[in-house]
Computed example of a mutant assay.
Amino acid sequence: MLDDFCTASIAEALDFADTHHWTRQPPRSDSARLRFLVTRYTDIGVLASRLGAKPGLVKEVMEGRRSAPGSVLSQAIAKDVVRLWQPRVRRRAHHLISTGHDGMLVHFKAWFGFTGVAGSSDDGRVRHITERLPTAYAAQLFQARYRNADEGELRGIIADAVGEAYFKVSPRGKLHMVALTDIAYIEFSY
């Protein structure tokens, strides 16, 4: 569905990781995907706004009278389907991860570092990191995602989690001693 998926968005990366738990595949054509999305939105205008398109165009694509022009609209449709497909399956997978039955792995390239002594090896720099997140942070991340938390809040949770796992420091006091910025890409697997 999103074969060449690469994102700097934590929310989108979480949504994409959920695709590995689906029990059924979503619709394949843009018109079928739009028919699915219309069932999740109050009206076609709200959906069109979400996709960054005009309501008339969305209606024409949904009815099959026109194909989605360019890959931008098609990609926006696919991302929204990924975000909304099989919510119960997604919640079940999140529950298993949040209760410690399964783990969550994060892989990213970003500016990442510990605000420690200047010039130390822990100083911030662009790093490629793959790390298993502590269970408590996975639960926090999912709860924040359910609330539609912004990217800044999600980034703070990931920074604290990877900081604890990578640098072996515990930011329990919400000091955010670890910074994560300028994400080139981020992926999750669970």
Rank of each mutant, 00 (worst) to 15 (best):
A8T: 02
S9A: 01
S9C: 00
S9Q: 01
A11M: 07
E12D: 14
A13P: 00
A13D: 03
A13T: 00
D15R: 01
D15K: 00
F16K: 00
F16E: 04
D18S: 07
T19P: 03
T23E: 12
T23R: 14
T23P: 03
R24M: 06
Q25H: 08
P26E: 02
P26Q: 09
R28Q: 14
R28V: 15
R28S: 15
S29E: 15
S31R: 11
A32E: 13
A32R: 06
R33P: 01
L34Q: 08
L34E: 10
R35T: 15
R35A: 13
F36R: 09
F36T: 14
L37M: 09
L37G: 04
L37H: 11
V38G: 08
T39M: 07
Y41A: 08
Y41L: 05
Y41G: 06
T42L: 09
V46T: 15
A48Q: 10
A48S: 14
L51G: 02
A53T: 10
K54C: 11
L57S: 08
L57N: 13
V58M: 12
V58A: 13
E60H: 15
E60G: 06
V61C: 13
V61D: 07
V61L: 07
M62K: 07
M62C: 11
E63A: 15
G64W: 07
G64H: 11
G64Q: 09
R65S: 14
R66W: 02
A68C: 05
A68S: 11
P69Q: 12
P69K: 08
P69L: 09
G70D: 03
S74I: 05
I77K: 07
A78C: 04
A78G: 06
K79F: 03
V81A: 03
V82G: 02
L84S: 04
L84P: 02
L84Y: 08
Q86F: 04
P87W: 04
R90Y: 01
R91S: 13
A93K: 01
A93Q: 03
A93E: 00
H94N: 12
H95W: 13
L96G: 11
T99N: 09
T99F: 04
D102L: 11
D102Q: 13
G103R: 03
G103D: 10
G103A: 07
M104D: 02
M104T: 14
V106R: 00
F108Q: 02
